[in-house]
Amino acid sequence: MWTKIVPVTALIASVSLTGGTAYATPSTPVGGEALGSRGLVAPEGVKKPPKTQATSFVIADVDTGQVLAAKDAHGRYLPASTLKTLTALTLIPKLDKNRKIRPSKNACNQEGTAVGLSVKATYKVDDLFKALMMSSGNDAAMALAETNGGLAQTMRDMNAEAKRLQANDTVAKTPSGLDKPGQSSSAYDLALIARAGLANPEFKRYISTKTSTFPAPRGHYEISNHNKLLWRYKGMVGVKNGWTSKAQGSFVGAATRGGHTILVSIMRHEGYFWEEVADLLDWGFSVRGKATPVGQLVDPLPAAQAAPQPGASAPATTQVTPAVQPPLLDTAAKKQTDSSRTIGAVVIGGGLLFGLIWLGYGIRRRRGRSRL
């Protein structure tokens, strides 16, 4: 069983706290009123987006930020390893990529997908980011979090970064994306995070690297990128895929053709999604510049409204020890109908309902194992 949480679209604003910083939750969906629909939101006058088994998706033009089509864009779901995009975006500016660390036993023993870190080996931060974004290493995620001053500090930093980006559907509880009660994101937020990441040269380098050598206690071995579209889809830049037994399949990816970049994010897909994502990307390229956008990927908040959290960075090469994560305040969720109606050139969802609390987020404590 799984429980879906949808975001708040209320006529009142709520406030969430992230590491002591207060942020007002918008009274309408971020990116435009149409994106509050749980149904398909698509422009008129062009062919409809191809079908996908994903419960939620967003197709957007990275250059303009225009959302070309969406379904349940702000629906909150478990993000699985796509949450690592937020981990990377948050920590890349904070950590010296040439710094060397020896991971803790806690980091090396993380469950799920691992790159194979060893307490006997020394790694550059650069190596760990490759392991994070190419091989989806949960061990690398924890090692990076501990290098950033501990798990608690990293979770504060990640949630502050999400609020800065206006990714208000996102609550990070782990740096790896392994399932944890209260953790969530949305197709819209994954698109926001990925768009911000694509503007960072180091982030873009990690997600677009197909293969790389990786250090071992003795010598090196080769790791490869889990994003199959890097080999299959013309112009694919990369980004991140994820899977857990509770979250099912999730993916966010971008491709560039003719000087233009299209981004697709999907959540809650029960099967093999690569061909469907390719079709969604093809559709995005075919309608960009021709279709009336149904929404907008918003810009980050000004620094004055979203002051960065102070980082605690330990000195040079040393054994990194884990820290305990404090509970974070969960934000409110919204409830909407699946009905839709046509207004102007777009199909938008029915009436707004007040959302005041998390509804039935009954995810059992047993976590699904991350495979991607």
Rank of each mutant, 00 (worst) to 15 (best):
L192W: 04
R156C: 14
T21M: 09
M142Q: 10
L328E: 11
L40K: 05
I101A: 04
R364C: 12
K4P: 14
K204C: 06
L68G: 01
S208T: 05
S16D: 11
V239P: 02
Y206Q: 04
T82G: 03
K240L: 02
L301N: 01
C108I: 11
M236A: 09
D157T: 10
G355V: 06
P215R: 08
A278S: 10
M142F: 08
D279F: 10
G271K: 10
K240W: 01
T209L: 06
S265K: 01
V237N: 01
L301Y: 01
W231R: 15
S186T: 05
Y272I: 15
F251V: 00
F203C: 04
N148M: 09
Q296V: 07
G45P: 05
A114N: 11
V287G: 03
R156I: 13
A24T: 14
M134T: 07
P26W: 03
A316Q: 14
I262L: 04
A304R: 08
T318M: 15
A10I: 09
A54F: 00
T292C: 03
T317Q: 13
A162F: 01
D157F: 06
M236N: 01
E33I: 12
D96V: 10
M155I: 15
S135L: 08
A303M: 12
F214Y: 07
P302A: 03
V252D: 00
A194P: 00
W243E: 05
P327Q: 11
D139A: 03
T85N: 04
A323R: 13
Q248K: 13
K335P: 08
L198I: 07
N200F: 00
L68T: 02
A254H: 04
G32A: 09
V119M: 13
K51S: 15
G311D: 12
T244W: 00
T64H: 06
I207M: 08
S176C: 08
A60K: 02
I363F: 13
A42S: 15
G289A: 09
W283Y: 11
N225M: 02
N225L: 02
T3P: 11
S340R: 10
K246V: 11
L192Y: 08
P300N: 05
R369G: 11
V62H: 07
A107Y: 06
T318L: 12
F57S: 00
V347A: 07
G362Q: 14
Q336W: 08
Q53W: 14
V30D: 00
K124W: 06
N138I: 04
L229C: 11
G284C: 06
